[in-house]
Protein backbone atom coordinates (compact mmCIF):
# COMPACT_ATOMS: atom_id res chain seq x y z
CA UNK A 1 0.00 0.00 0.00
CA UNK A 2 1.06 3.54 -0.80
CA UNK A 3 -0.50 6.61 0.77
CA UNK A 4 0.57 10.23 1.07
CA UNK A 5 -1.27 13.23 2.44
CA UNK A 6 -0.61 16.90 1.82
CA UNK A 7 -2.38 20.19 2.34
CA UNK A 8 -4.02 21.87 -0.67
CA UNK A 9 -1.53 24.18 -2.35
CA UNK A 10 1.49 22.18 -1.17
CA UNK A 11 4.72 22.17 -3.14
CA UNK A 12 3.92 18.91 -5.01
CA UNK A 13 0.68 20.40 -6.30
CA UNK A 14 2.51 23.58 -7.36
CA UNK A 15 5.17 21.62 -9.22
CA UNK A 16 2.62 19.43 -11.01
CA UNK A 17 0.80 22.59 -12.17
CA UNK A 18 4.07 24.10 -13.38
CA UNK A 19 5.23 21.10 -15.43
CA UNK A 20 1.96 20.78 -17.35
CA UNK A 21 3.09 22.82 -20.35
CA UNK A 22 5.77 20.21 -21.10
CA UNK A 23 4.49 16.93 -19.74
CA UNK A 24 1.34 14.88 -20.38
CA UNK A 25 2.20 11.57 -18.81
CA UNK A 26 4.73 10.79 -16.10
CA UNK A 27 6.19 7.69 -14.57
CA UNK A 28 5.96 7.75 -10.79
CA UNK A 29 8.03 5.52 -8.50
CA UNK A 30 7.27 5.33 -4.82
CA UNK A 31 9.50 3.84 -2.16
CA UNK A 32 9.79 4.16 1.60
CA UNK A 33 12.22 7.04 0.99
CA UNK A 34 9.87 9.17 -1.06
CA UNK A 35 8.02 10.00 -4.25
CA UNK A 36 9.89 10.28 -7.54
CA UNK A 37 8.62 11.19 -10.98
CA UNK A 38 10.19 11.07 -14.44
CA UNK A 39 8.74 12.44 -17.64
CA UNK A 40 9.75 13.35 -21.16
CA UNK A 41 8.21 16.14 -23.18
CA UNK A 42 6.48 15.05 -26.39
CA UNK A 43 9.40 16.21 -28.55
CA UNK A 44 11.97 14.40 -26.39
CA UNK A 45 13.98 17.55 -25.78
CA UNK A 46 13.38 17.81 -22.04
CA UNK A 47 13.61 15.09 -19.40
CA UNK A 48 12.24 15.90 -15.97
CA UNK A 49 13.25 13.97 -12.89
CA UNK A 50 12.02 14.90 -9.45
CA UNK A 51 12.27 13.40 -5.99
CA UNK A 52 10.19 14.48 -3.00
CA UNK A 53 11.50 12.87 0.19
CA UNK A 54 8.84 11.39 2.48
CA UNK A 55 9.41 14.11 5.10
CA UNK A 56 8.05 16.90 2.87
CA UNK A 57 4.57 15.39 3.04
CA UNK A 58 2.15 15.72 5.92
CA UNK A 59 2.18 11.94 6.15
CA UNK A 60 3.72 9.28 3.93
CA UNK A 61 3.55 5.51 3.88
CA UNK A 62 4.89 3.05 1.29
CA UNK A 63 5.00 -0.61 2.31
CA UNK A 64 6.37 -1.85 -1.00
CA UNK A 65 8.09 -0.07 -3.90
CA UNK A 66 5.64 0.65 -6.69
CA UNK A 67 5.79 2.17 -10.15
CA UNK A 68 2.90 3.66 -12.07
CA UNK A 69 2.06 5.82 -15.07
CA UNK A 70 -0.02 8.90 -14.33
CA UNK A 71 -1.79 11.25 -16.74
CA UNK A 72 -0.54 14.41 -15.05
CA UNK A 73 -3.00 16.81 -16.70
CA UNK A 74 -5.95 14.72 -15.47
CA UNK A 75 -4.46 14.51 -12.00
CA UNK A 76 -3.94 18.27 -11.83
CA UNK A 77 -7.52 18.82 -12.99
CA UNK A 78 -8.77 16.65 -10.15
CA UNK A 79 -6.50 18.37 -7.59
CA UNK A 80 -7.78 21.78 -8.70
CA UNK A 81 -11.26 20.77 -7.54
CA UNK A 82 -10.10 20.79 -3.90
CA UNK A 83 -11.02 23.66 -1.59
CA UNK A 84 -8.77 25.85 0.54
CA UNK A 85 -7.73 24.07 3.70
CA UNK A 86 -8.53 20.59 2.33
CA UNK A 87 -6.20 17.74 3.15
CA UNK A 88 -5.42 15.75 0.00
CA UNK A 89 -4.67 12.03 0.16
CA UNK A 90 -3.23 10.06 -2.77
CA UNK A 91 -3.51 6.33 -2.30
CA UNK A 92 -2.83 3.05 -4.13
CA UNK A 93 -3.88 -0.22 -2.57
CA UNK A 94 -2.19 -3.51 -3.35
CA UNK A 95 -5.46 -5.16 -4.38
CA UNK A 96 -6.17 -2.64 -7.09
CA UNK A 97 -3.25 -1.51 -9.19
CA UNK A 98 -5.27 -0.03 -12.02
CA UNK A 99 -6.05 3.31 -10.53
CA UNK A 100 -5.13 5.69 -7.75
CA UNK A 101 -7.58 7.17 -5.30
CA UNK A 102 -7.47 10.88 -4.52
CA UNK A 103 -9.40 12.10 -1.48
CA UNK A 104 -10.13 15.62 -0.27
CA UNK A 105 -11.12 16.11 3.33
CA UNK A 106 -12.48 19.48 4.47
CA UNK A 107 -10.74 21.16 7.45
CA UNK A 108 -13.73 20.49 9.75
CA UNK A 109 -13.83 16.86 8.48
CA UNK A 110 -17.51 17.15 7.54
CA UNK A 111 -17.00 16.64 3.80
CA UNK A 112 -14.97 14.02 1.96
CA UNK A 113 -14.57 13.69 -1.81
CA UNK A 114 -13.13 10.47 -3.29
CA UNK A 115 -11.99 10.20 -6.90
CA UNK A 116 -10.35 7.38 -8.83
CA UNK A 117 -7.87 8.17 -11.59
CA UNK A 118 -6.95 5.40 -14.01
CA UNK A 119 -3.27 4.64 -14.36
CA UNK A 120 -1.70 4.72 -17.83
CA UNK A 121 1.32 3.19 -19.53
CA UNK A 122 4.27 5.56 -19.11
CA UNK A 123 7.17 3.13 -19.54
CA UNK A 124 8.45 5.04 -22.56
CA UNK A 125 9.03 7.99 -20.21
CA UNK A 126 12.01 6.37 -18.54
CA UNK A 127 15.57 7.19 -19.45
CA UNK A 128 18.71 5.60 -18.16
CA UNK A 129 20.72 8.34 -16.56
CA UNK A 130 23.77 7.93 -14.36
CA UNK A 131 23.68 8.41 -10.63
CA UNK A 132 23.65 12.13 -10.11
CA UNK A 133 26.79 12.36 -7.96
CA UNK A 134 28.73 10.69 -10.83
CA UNK A 135 27.15 12.91 -13.42
CA UNK A 136 27.65 16.25 -11.71
CA UNK A 137 31.43 15.98 -12.04
CA UNK A 138 30.96 15.66 -15.83
CA UNK A 139 29.66 19.20 -16.14
CA UNK A 140 32.19 21.77 -17.30
CA UNK A 141 30.52 24.59 -15.38
CA UNK A 142 27.85 24.79 -12.72
CA UNK A 143 26.39 28.03 -11.42
CA UNK A 144 23.57 29.09 -9.10
CA UNK A 145 21.37 32.12 -9.47
CA UNK A 146 18.15 33.49 -7.95
CA UNK A 147 15.31 31.78 -9.80
CA UNK A 148 13.50 35.11 -10.29
CA UNK A 149 16.60 36.39 -12.13
CA UNK A 150 16.67 33.26 -14.30
CA UNK A 151 13.02 33.79 -15.24
CA UNK A 152 13.65 37.48 -15.97
CA UNK A 153 16.58 36.63 -18.25
CA UNK A 154 14.51 34.10 -20.21
CA UNK A 155 11.61 36.54 -20.58
CA UNK A 156 13.84 39.45 -21.67
CA UNK A 157 15.60 37.36 -24.30
CA UNK A 158 12.45 35.80 -25.73
CA UNK A 159 11.29 39.24 -26.84
CA UNK A 160 14.05 39.15 -29.47
CA UNK A 161 14.42 35.53 -30.57
CA UNK A 162 13.57 31.87 -29.85
CA UNK A 163 17.08 30.86 -28.78
CA UNK A 164 19.46 31.77 -25.99
CA UNK A 165 23.21 31.29 -25.88
CA UNK A 166 24.49 30.72 -22.33
CA UNK A 167 28.25 31.27 -21.96
CA UNK A 168 30.24 30.60 -18.82
CA UNK A 169 33.85 31.36 -18.06
CA UNK A 170 35.75 32.33 -14.91
CA UNK A 171 34.90 36.03 -15.28
CA UNK A 172 31.35 36.13 -16.62
CA UNK A 173 28.11 34.21 -17.06
CA UNK A 174 26.12 35.59 -19.97
CA UNK A 175 22.73 35.01 -21.53
CA UNK A 176 22.48 36.42 -25.03
CA UNK A 177 20.35 36.32 -28.15
CA UNK A 178 20.26 37.92 -31.55
CA UNK A 179 17.17 38.36 -33.70
CA UNK A 180 15.83 40.35 -36.64
CA UNK A 181 14.92 43.30 -34.44
CA UNK A 182 18.12 43.48 -32.37
CA UNK A 183 20.13 41.70 -29.74
CA UNK A 184 20.22 41.30 -25.96
CA UNK A 185 23.16 40.38 -23.78
CA UNK A 186 22.77 39.91 -20.02
CA UNK A 187 26.06 39.44 -18.16
CA UNK A 188 26.54 38.43 -14.55
CA UNK A 189 29.85 38.67 -12.73
CA UNK A 190 29.81 35.56 -10.57
CA UNK A 191 30.90 35.00 -7.00
CA UNK A 192 33.15 32.01 -6.64
CA UNK A 193 32.26 29.96 -3.60
CA UNK A 194 30.90 26.55 -2.68
CA UNK A 195 28.33 28.16 -0.45
CA UNK A 196 26.19 30.42 -2.68
CA UNK A 197 24.37 33.37 -1.17
CA UNK A 198 20.70 33.45 -2.03
CA UNK A 199 20.73 36.81 -3.77
CA UNK A 200 23.79 36.41 -5.97
CA UNK A 201 24.99 34.55 -9.04
CA UNK A 202 27.65 32.06 -7.99
CA UNK A 203 29.99 29.90 -9.98
CA UNK A 204 30.30 26.72 -7.92
CA UNK A 205 32.15 24.44 -10.34
CA UNK A 206 34.41 25.34 -13.24
CA UNK A 207 36.53 23.09 -15.42
CA UNK A 208 36.73 25.32 -18.47
CA UNK A 209 34.75 27.81 -20.53
CA UNK A 210 31.60 26.45 -22.14
CA UNK A 211 28.68 27.77 -24.16
CA UNK A 212 25.38 26.17 -25.24
CA UNK A 213 22.48 27.26 -27.45
CA UNK A 214 19.02 26.43 -26.14
CA UNK A 215 15.45 26.95 -27.21
CA UNK A 216 13.88 29.57 -24.92
CA UNK A 217 10.50 27.82 -24.95
CA UNK A 218 11.99 24.98 -22.89
CA UNK A 219 14.07 27.33 -20.76
CA UNK A 220 10.98 29.34 -19.85
CA UNK A 221 9.26 26.14 -18.73
CA UNK A 222 12.22 25.29 -16.49
CA UNK A 223 12.23 28.85 -15.15
CA UNK A 224 8.52 28.61 -14.33
CA UNK A 225 9.09 25.64 -12.02
CA UNK A 226 12.22 27.21 -10.56
CA UNK A 227 10.30 30.29 -9.38
CA UNK A 228 8.60 28.05 -6.81
CA UNK A 229 12.06 28.02 -5.16
CA UNK A 230 14.60 30.73 -4.29
CA UNK A 231 17.60 29.48 -6.21
CA UNK A 232 18.26 27.50 -9.36
CA UNK A 233 21.41 25.58 -10.22
CA UNK A 234 22.43 25.32 -13.87
CA UNK A 235 25.05 22.94 -15.28
CA UNK A 236 26.61 23.14 -18.74
CA UNK A 237 28.59 20.56 -20.65
CA UNK A 238 29.21 19.95 -24.33
CA UNK A 239 28.65 16.22 -23.72
CA UNK A 240 25.48 16.32 -21.63
CA UNK A 241 22.11 18.05 -21.82
CA UNK A 242 21.86 21.33 -19.93
CA UNK A 243 20.83 20.67 -16.33
CA UNK A 244 18.50 22.93 -14.35
CA UNK A 245 18.04 21.92 -10.73
CA UNK A 246 16.08 23.14 -7.73
CA UNK A 247 16.52 21.61 -4.30
CA UNK A 248 13.55 20.46 -2.24
CA UNK A 249 14.33 20.27 1.49
CA UNK A 250 17.58 18.43 2.30
CA UNK A 251 17.49 15.48 -0.08
CA UNK A 252 14.84 16.33 -2.62
CA UNK A 253 15.20 17.87 -6.06
CA UNK A 254 13.64 18.76 -9.37
CA UNK A 255 16.02 18.34 -12.30
CA UNK A 256 15.39 19.25 -15.89
CA UNK A 257 17.71 17.97 -18.60
CA UNK A 258 17.39 20.00 -21.78
CA UNK A 259 18.97 18.91 -25.08
CA UNK A 260 20.82 21.88 -26.59
CA UNK A 261 20.78 23.04 -30.20
CA UNK A 262 23.80 22.39 -32.35
CA UNK A 263 25.23 24.33 -35.28
CA UNK A 264 25.86 21.97 -38.16
Amino acid sequence: MFELTMAKGSILQGVLEAILDLVNVANVDCSSKGFSLQALDTEHVVFLSLFFPSEVFRSYRCDEDCSMGIAIADMVDLLRASNDGDIITIKVTDQNFEDITITFESPDKTKTTDMDLQLVDARSHRLKISEWHDMESEYQAIFCMPSAQFMLNCKSLSVIDDDVVIRVNEEVISFSTKGKSGCVNISHVPNKTDNPEKASVTLTHMRGPVSLTLNLRYMKSCAKVSTLFDQVKIGLSTKLPLMVECKIAEKGYIRYFVAPKITE
Binding site: F47, R126, L127, K239, P241, A259, I262, T263
Partner: peptide
Protein backbone atom coordinates in the same frame (compact mmCIF):
# COMPACT_ATOMS: atom_id res chain seq x y z
CA UNK B 1 20.23 27.94 -38.06
CA UNK B 2 21.19 25.73 -35.07
CA UNK B 3 19.39 22.38 -35.08
CA UNK B 4 17.53 21.04 -32.05
CA UNK B 5 19.02 17.84 -30.66
CA UNK B 6 16.97 15.22 -28.80
CA UNK B 7 17.76 13.45 -25.55
CA UNK B 8 18.37 10.04 -27.14
CA UNK B 9 21.72 11.47 -28.21
CA UNK B 10 22.70 11.65 -24.54
CA UNK B 11 20.64 9.05 -22.65
CA UNK B 12 19.40 5.60 -23.62
CA UNK B 13 15.89 4.29 -22.78
CA UNK B 14 15.68 2.34 -19.52
Amino acid sequence: QPKQQVLSRFFSPK
